[in-house]
């Protein structure tokens, strides 16, 4: 199998995530869409790791780092969401205007 199908799958997944992140109004759905975009990047990393000559493990190591950082991002993002929901009683992107003037 060639490299291109995997990269194309990454492009499609990235596009889906980008669409969700730009149109959805629920903050959690936006976070989920960002996770999908990160996953698309991970697919590319692992695919290049598999198809490089000779096969090198670096791409997988970078994918692992990326997964760890995505986990940290989700934890902090959901904590911010909960604190925000407690003060505003809403999870809508439109209501996040506390620092807007």
């Amino acid at each position: 199998m060639a490299l291109q199908p995997f990269l194309a799958l990454g492009v499609v997944l990235f596009g889906l995530g980008l669409f969700g992140a730009l149109t959805k109004r629920n903050i959690i759905i936006v976070l989920i869409s960002i996770e999908m975009m990160l996953n698309a990047a991970n697919i590319n990393l692992v695919a290049f790791s598999h198809f490089s000559q000779p096969a090198s493990i670096e791409g997988q190591v970078y994918a692992l780092f990326s997964i760890a950082i995505a986990a940290a991002e989700v934890a902090v993002g959901l904590a911010i969401l909960l604190a925000y929901f407690r003060s505003r009683n809403s999870a809508d992107v439109k209501d996040v205007d506390l620092m807007k003037w």
Binding site: L9, L13, N39, N42, I43, V46, H50, Q60, A63
Partner: peptide, 20 residues
């Protein structure tokens, strides 16, 4: 969402990256 993540995991295993 679980379906998306499991599918990506399958792609990783298909690419020989079983640990990832």
């Amino acid at each position: 969402l679980g379906g998306v993540f499991l599918g990506v995991a399958g792609i990783f295993i298909l690419l020989g990256a079983d640990f990832v």
